[in-house]
Design a protein around this nucleic acid. Structure first.
Lengths: 173, 173
DNA sequence: AAATCCGATTGCATTTTGCAATCAGTTGCA
DNA sequence: TGCAACTGATTGCAAAATGCAATCGGATTT
């Protein structure tokens, strides 16, 4: 059980889990981007993770109980990574982190619209999102009605992108 | 403005601020431990930070706008580090992080009692705590009445330590 | 006058990271 | 059938970060 921790402080132990530059990025892409495969995570993240780091972090997150891995039945070579409840319960923290970053850091509009929507939706929206994720990743029952939270966030993102593209056409720099 | 960031994503930018093993530990010790001096931070943290890392992180956090440094008037050699609003507004995130760690990680009872109290106090208690911190670090007005939140957390900690010591006396292993 | 405390700094070995190339097996398509 | 593209990784290597111990010059305490 006690495998070499610096201290039993909750904040310290949390840092030992994702106190690095990539683990939370991977979880972000799985949670908000819906990515489930190695290549999706490798090519999909804007930040450009290296494949050896990705492999290492996926392994680590699995050992920590944040992810599981299964064979993709439709594709003998593909592996599907799933979030565990431990990872899904990070949603409120990611929402707070996004809100904090929006206030204090030089975020871009496109990439912070999701954080803004999630902040406005508040804890009820986070809870809906977690239900969606449990459905996707743990096989739990889906919500009865309405679009998924990820679809809502994605729609907001696309609206911003479209609006900026339109503005660029109208007013070429 | 744009000084070499991996992306404008709020979560990524947040990770660039404290996505390492020490920055949040230092902020934790300042926020919850009330430490203001280099030596207090050096000797006070259970995890045992090295002096060169501490010096580097203090400098970094100052450059990022999370801390300020001032001369201690009572001691020509001492420097006092203060939290900025940017750092104080991390309190809700630290509270969530502590709550998450308490559920999913092998925390020790002594070191997680603060997180437990903060969780039970909820957002109203966090807000009180932030008012206290603004008073301590920014010279803002103090709350009119009642003990500081840190004093409450500290009392809880000491109660646990005392209870465990008593149990050890009564039942020597 | 001596010892201790102050916020660091230095040197050095170890570990982690970043990057590019590569791997063997699987799949899709001509 | 042949072959290119794609699958989840692995390897080698240079650069950066970390951990650790010793040390610094000045200030304060005893």
């Amino acid at each position: 059980m006690n495998t070499d921790h610096r201290s039993g402080c909750p904040i310290n132990l949390s840092l030992e889990v994702f106190g690095d530059r990539w683990s939370l990025i991977i979880l972000r892409d799985m949670i908000f981007g819906g990515r489930r495969h190695f290549r999706e995570l490798l090519n999909g993240s804007i930040e450009g993770i290296a494949s050896n780091i990705l492999a290492d972090r996926l392994k680590r997150l699995m050992e920590l109980g944040m992810l599981t891995k299964a064979d993709d039945p439709s594709h003998k070579q593909k592996a599907i990574y799933s979030l565990t409840e431990m990872a899904i319960s990070l949603v409120p923290i990611l929402a707070h982190l996004g809100a904090w970053g929006r206030v204090w850091l030089p975020v871009s509009e496109e990439l912070s619209i999701r954080a803004e929507l999630l902040e406005k939706g508040g804890p009820p929206m986070w809870e809906q999102f977690m239900v969606d994720l449990r459905h996707e990743h743990l096989g739990a029952p889906a919500r009865a009605s309405g679009p998924t939270v990820r679809a809502i966030l994605q729609a907001g993102y696309e609206a911003v992108v479209a609006r900026k593209a339109l503005a660029a056409v109208r007013d070429p720099a």
